[in-house]
Design a binder for these strands. Structure first.
Lengths: 253, 253
DNA sequence: CAAGTTTTTTGATGTAAATCAAAACAATGC
DNA sequence: GCATTGTTTTGATTTACATCAAAAAACTTG
């Protein structure tokens, strides 16, 4: 349960320009020298075992991380032990921006599975941002993605009821898979029910019931962590049109 | 209800080094030339009337804004017209970072009252970030503040009961006032009940009942938008869930 | 592969908060 | 001043979801 020792393992390194995630990480328009500068700045393939922490709340910020394989969850916890999961980070996602306010992380980051990450030290991050405007733009874009993600979750927690929350989650995970060239209709959930329920602000029992409900309605088929979406249209309907109890059909004023 | 025409009004400008918010905006350690560069980059005192929009969702990002007087709310809305308020921006707060992901704003920003903002165009923002590492650091810090703020709200919406949510909100507004040299025990709420209820993810009626409850318990006294905190300890106890950094030391078990 | 542990699902019941309804209270205009 | 409109509070009722309880799967481990 201790934070993993980083700044290690260069073995098994894959150069950025060969990495399958390069389209996500690498800005276009870097010349040879700039690319080399970037490659030399990154500590490749740090390994984190399942349930180990990438960082803890109040840790001094060392780096920005990019997930290469596996999955990370970030969470805040309260003095009395309640936690709120803030995000799930899958291959291609960047994390660590939370520490910008105080140079210390504001949340915990724990591996949901054995995980590989690239590490960009803050020192190198600063240097890259100073020297390469393109890299700075790319980083700003990633920060924007982080802010947008949190805003969507706020909308979900604040306005939707439980079935809609799950439909929204499944729908956006499906969309994400599609964007990355995986099947949008069939995929494995990277997290346990407990974590997903917490993330979506509901009890595990409620989440389970909502899975059952979507299954009964023939919108999805679930077994364990495998989800098959059989009626994408209806799923997206549930996710988009908030089906208010009484009047779903409002006369357009 | 139209987005205000900006890039105007240099009249009534107050130079940055004379502005009462300078401690919030200005990084330390800028020399004469650097300060001048900053001052020339900023379009001062743009006026927005109550209920006008500073920007809309999908607007191309023109600028980063700093609130000088008044108040701004940002919100997301769903296709069916439900909205979720994401944040309230008071004097000294910066907003506009949401657009980093796509160069377009992801939310709406509306004035809750007649409001003054400073405007820093993205062009100048980029230039400052490139030329002045100190400014870049300051901006990164502000982005971190934004991320942290959203994370706290996620915890609030996901884990707390309604009374706790209100207690947390009042407690942190009080804290904010204290930090800025205003009374932590007596202040005016900058927003209507409707907006606060939405922000805190509850019905207006519930919010009203929670105000009444806190008043019955002699923790606060409210009349309209004026709030007096009569028992700060008990308020903070109720807001106990909230994890704040170093300053928040709770003496009780 | 049986025995234990953890995770997930299903069922019964309780409750916090939403919704419905209306009064009290401000703000605005003529 | 009184009517008009919008905001906030209070009360009665409903409900979506949490909680409690336990069975059923699914992973462990000897």
């Amino acid at each position: 349960m201790k934070t993993v020792q980083l700044h290690s393992a260069k073995k098994n390194a894959v150069a950025c320009h060969n990495c399958s995630l390069s389209e996500l990480c690498l800005p276009r328009g870097l010349n040879r020298d700039e690319l080399e500068l970037l490659e030399n700045s990154i500590n490749k393939t740090v390994k984190i075992k399942k349930k180990d922490y990438l960082f803890h709340r109040d840790d001094a910020q060392q780096s920005i991380f990019a997930v290469k394989a596996g999955a990370i969850k970030t969470s805040l916890s309260t003095p009395d032990g309640e936690e709120q999961i803030l995000g799930f980070y899958l291959p291609g996602d960047l994390l660590g921006f939370d520490a910008f306010a105080r140079d210390r992380h504001t949340c915990d980051a724990q591996a949901l599975d054995d995980t590989l990450v690239c590490e960009l030290s803050m020192e190198n991050f600063q240097e890259l941002c100073g020297k390469l405007p393109i890299m700075r733009g790319q980083m700003m874009r990633q920060i924007g993605v982080e802010i947008e993600r949190e805003q969507m979750l706020l909308l979900t927690l604040g306005q939707m009821r439980t079935e809609e929350r799950l439909a929204t989650f499944l729908s956006s995970l499906s969309e994400r898979n599609r964007e990355r060239g995986f099947s949008p209709a069939e995929f494995n959930l990277p997290m346990a029910r407990h974590d997903l329920a917490n993330y979506l602000g509901m009890a595990v029992e409620t989440l389970s019931r909502m899975f059952s409900r979507l299954q009964e309605e023939n919108i999805i088929a679930v077994q364990h962590r495998l989800v098959k979406i059989s009626d994408m249209n209806r799923l997206k309907q549930l996710a988009h049109h908030t089906c208010r109890p009484a009047s779903d059909v409002l006369p357009s004023a």
